[in-house]
Write a protein that binds this DNA or RNA. Structure first.
Ligand SMILES: [Mn+2]
Ligand SMILES: [Mn+2]
Ligand SMILES: [Mn+2]
Ligand SMILES: [Mn+2]
Lengths: 217, 217
DNA sequence: ATAAAAGATAAGGTCTACCTTAATATATGG
DNA sequence: CCATATATTAAGGTAGACCTTATCTTTTAT
């Protein structure tokens, strides 16, 4: 298990969590990684040879139990490092991902468990994604989007998509995890939602509001 | 600068610190890394091409200023991670090196500086090696060996060679960094030294005592 | 001075993880 | 039902970082 293999497993895992029980298309992986489809194909064959994925031509790829177990370890390491970088070193949320992307491959399970304990066994990373425990179990994923909320509702931001341009945009809008907002207006034609955060009026496009997940307060 | 290149620079740096202004022999690198001399030769050529080392056939290799600067960054990262792993996660000193060997390559300078501050800008790692600051300056290296001490002297252990079998042996002898010991007896024929630590009698071979560095108390 | 030891170089090989160009197979929607 | 879009496979290439086998050069110690 080297960084390249690990990153493939993690990516496949993340795609699988989006659209449950779907095969992941090689083309999607190619696009996401910025590699050619041929390279993806080669690696998929290697992963298959290692018993980490199941592959059906023209359908796509899917993790085996063994592959999923490995992927979960990586997801776990990634999110634990994010918590460390944020909580202990004070890195802003848009910087966490890239750093964790490297650290996740550089740590033994023994050190990871100690780090996890040191951080107080956090259940979520600083983007609101659940952190699997040693057995692979994790807290629920917030699935209700801000845009799906109704006018008058008061909600709390609990998860955002971990994508740097989005996080930078949220910084500009002055929106952070655990912020409480009240839906003032929702215009499905203009594709906008207006919310109130502590007396501050914030206007958010539908596209952005669909990448923000909330709980009703 | 990738992990392989970084590890070569660090190794050359460490050999250079031992025997000042000496060229490092490719054979020594080969032995230490466990690679063939041919492989070392190839890599040395690459390092030379990158302007990181100066190489004289039959004499050896030496870091350029550029190479030394890079090497120092790695030494710094390595030792800072060791402090983290020991002080915050409680890893025993014999486990620090292997873990730091991976983490040192996985961290940006920005994160490293934050980590350094988080740890309280330590001057020494947990084996007593000085940690260079951002400019490359560092506290002095302890150079007086335990075996060179005289009977009757009371000394404090300030540095040990970071070599796992040695550290395990010191654990068995119940010797740690900052322990205070008094030299009871030194037998240059039997190649032994006997010390008292808090009423406990500890017998140490010359070879081992020469890998332990002390200050006079 | 010279032979043995130490060190360097040459040539060819492997494996990983990427790439390009080109051919081929499948899916599907009009 | 078949054309076009989508997906796959083939073939060959590169660069890094290792390897082995073999030859050649320099140093050094007697
Ligand atoms: Mn990664
Ligand atoms: Mn995250
Ligand atoms: Mn290393
Ligand atoms: Mn150390």
């Amino acid at each position: 298990m080297n960084p390249a293999v690990e990153d493939y497993l993690k990516m496949i895992y993340e795609f699988e969590s989006d659209r449950k029980d779907q095969y992941v298309k090689n083309a999607r992986l190619a696009e996401q990684f910025g590699y050619t489809i041929q390279s993806i194909n080669e690696m998929i064959k290697r992963l298959k040879g290692m018993g980490l994925v199941e592959y059906k031509p023209y359908r796509g790829v899917r993790l085996t139990d063994k592959g999923r177990k490995e992927a979960l370890k990586l997801v776990r390491a990634h999110r634990i490092w994010e918590v460390f970088l944020s909580d202990k070193l004070g890195l802003p949320w848009e910087a966490l991902h890239d750093e964790a992307e490297k650290l996740e491959h550089a740590v033994s399970e023994a050190v990871l468990e100690r780090l996890y304990a040191f951080l107080g066994r956090p259940e979520y990373c600083n983007h609101g994604n659940p952190i699997p425990d040693q057995t692979g179990h994790m807290a629920p994923t917030y699935k209700k989007s801000l845009f799906s909320s109704s006018v008058g509702e008061t909600v709390v931001i609990k998860r955002v998509v971990d994508y740097k341009p989005l996080l930078n945009h949220l910084n500009k809008l002055d929106l952070s995890l655990n912020d409480q907002v009240r839906i003032l207006e929702k215009d499905t034609f203009a594709k906008l939602i207006k919310v109130d955060k502590n007396g501050e009026l914030i206007t958010i496009s539908q596209t952005i509001a669909e990448t923000i997940y909330v709980t009703q307060d």
